[in-house]
Design a protein around this nucleic acid. Structure first.
Length: 92
DNA sequence: GTTGAGCGTT
């Protein structure tokens, strides 16, 4: 299950996010979204877990957890199947 | 060296 984790500290890293979710279950992939120019953390990332029940448990546990003085918000990630690089709507 | 709503590359 792909999950979107926001409200993270700027000093957060992908491995930190991975360890955070790995404590509740098996983490398939965890990455922090960084800026393309400054290459700095944007304060949010994505976590993918193979086990759905573990993902839901981790989501329920990590969501609202106090980290670095901020409540981490965990929500289900939106599908990025659509072509964002197209620039035109193929719908019409 | 800064800031604070959000949805990203292999």
């Amino acid at each position: 299950m792909n999950m979107h984790v926001s409200n993270l500290a700027f000093s957060f890293q992908d491995e930190d996010l991975k360890k955070l979710f790995a404590d509740y279950g098996t983490v398939s992939a965890a990455k922090i979204i960084t800026d393309k120019f400054t290459n700095k953390s944007r304060g949010f990332g994505f976590v993918e877990m193979a086990d759905e029940k573990a993902a839901q448990t981790a989501m329920s546990e990590v969501n609202g957890k106090m980290i670095d003085g901020r409540s981490v918000k965990v929500t289900e990630a939106r599908p990025r199947e659509e072509n964002r690089s197209n620039g035109f709507n193929k719908r019409w």
